[in-house]
Computed example of a mutant assay.
Amino acid sequence: MEMKKIASLALSLSLCAGLLAGCGDSGNGGGNGGAAGGDGDKPESYKVAFIGSFTGNQAQYGESQRASIEMYLEKFNADGGVDGVPVVVDWYDDKSDPKETVTVGNKILGDDSVIAAIGPFSSTSAMAIAPMFEEAGITLYSPSSSHPDFTNMGEYMFRGTPTQEYYVQEYAKYISDVMGCKKIGMIYVNSDYGVVIHDLFIPEIQKYGGELVVAENYIVGQTKDFSPLISKIKTQDIDCLYIVGHYAEGAQIISQAKKLQLDVPYIGTASLMKQELIDICGDAADGFLLLNNFTPDNDAPGFQEWLAEFEERNPNISVDAHVVNTYDTIDMICQAIQNVGADRAAVRDWINAQAEFPGIGGTFSMAENGDAIKPLFPMIVKDGHFVSNA
Rank of each mutant, 00 (worst) to 15 (best):
K4R: 14
I6Q: 12
L13G: 08
S14M: 15
L15Q: 08
C16A: 15
A17E: 15
G18Q: 07
G33T: 00
G33W: 09
G34M: 03
D39P: 11
D41V: 10
P43W: 12
S45N: 09
S45Q: 08
G52T: 04
T55M: 11
G62M: 13
E63Q: 12
E63V: 13
L73M: 05
K75W: 09
V82C: 08
D83H: 12
P86A: 13
V88W: 11
V88E: 15
V88R: 14
D93E: 12
D93T: 10
D94C: 12
K95R: 14
P98H: 05
V102I: 10
T103V: 12
K107A: 11
G110E: 04
I115A: 06
S123Q: 05
M127H: 05
M127S: 06
M132F: 11
E134I: 08
S144F: 05
S145Y: 06
S146Y: 05
P148A: 05
G154Q: 02
R159S: 13
T163M: 15
E165T: 04
Y174C: 10
V178E: 15
K182E: 14
K182D: 13
K182F: 12
I184C: 03
D192I: 02
Y193T: 03
I197R: 03
H198L: 03
P203S: 07
G210Q: 03
G210R: 04
E211D: 08
V213E: 00
A215M: 02
I219K: 13
S231L: 04
T235E: 15
D237C: 07
I238G: 05
D239Y: 09
D239R: 02
I243L: 05
V244S: 03
H246G: 09
E249G: 05
I253L: 00
I253C: 05
I254K: 01
Q256H: 07
Q261A: 14
D263F: 11
M273K: 11
L277W: 02
A284S: 15
F288Y: 14
L291I: 07
P301I: 13
F303N: 07
F303V: 13
L307R: 12
L307G: 01
E309D: 15
E309I: 10
E311V: 13
E312H: 04
S318L: 04
V323I: 13
T326A: 02
D328A: 01
T329D: 03
I330H: 00
Q338G: 14
D343C: 12
D343F: 11
R344C: 08
V347W: 03
R348C: 10
R348V: 10
R348A: 11
D349L: 07
F357S: 04
F357G: 01
P358C: 05
G359E: 09
I360S: 03
G361R: 12
E368A: 15
L376P: 08
P378W: 02
V381M: 04
V381G: 00
V387K: 04
A390N: 15
